[in-house]
């Protein structure tokens, strides 16, 4: 079977660096560099750094 074409846009998870497990989901072009931003984490109730989750193996 022919491989399915990879989509140009991917959705990524930005994970709270406060280790609360809280995350935001964004979409970005696949070729762009990983996203990161400072956003609100409601669990620690503070603005903390969010980094994109490491891509898991294949897919």
């Amino acid at each position: 079977m022919a491989k399915k074409a990879k989509s140009r846009i991917i959705s990524v998870r930005l994970i709270s660096m406060a280790m609360t497990g809280y995350f935001y989901t964004f979409t970005r072009p696949r070729t762009r560099m990983p996203m990161s931003m400072i956003k609100y984490d409601p669990i620690v109730r503070r603005r903390v750094l969010f980094l994109e989750q490491k891509r898991s193996g294949k897919k």
Partner: peptide
């Protein structure tokens, strides 16, 4: 504990960022 430590390091992390 993990969360607390992460929060202690947070200002420094943000400064680096």
């Amino acid at each position: 504990e993990k969360r607390r430590e992460a929060m202690l390091k947070m200002p420094e992390l943000i400064r680096q960022y």
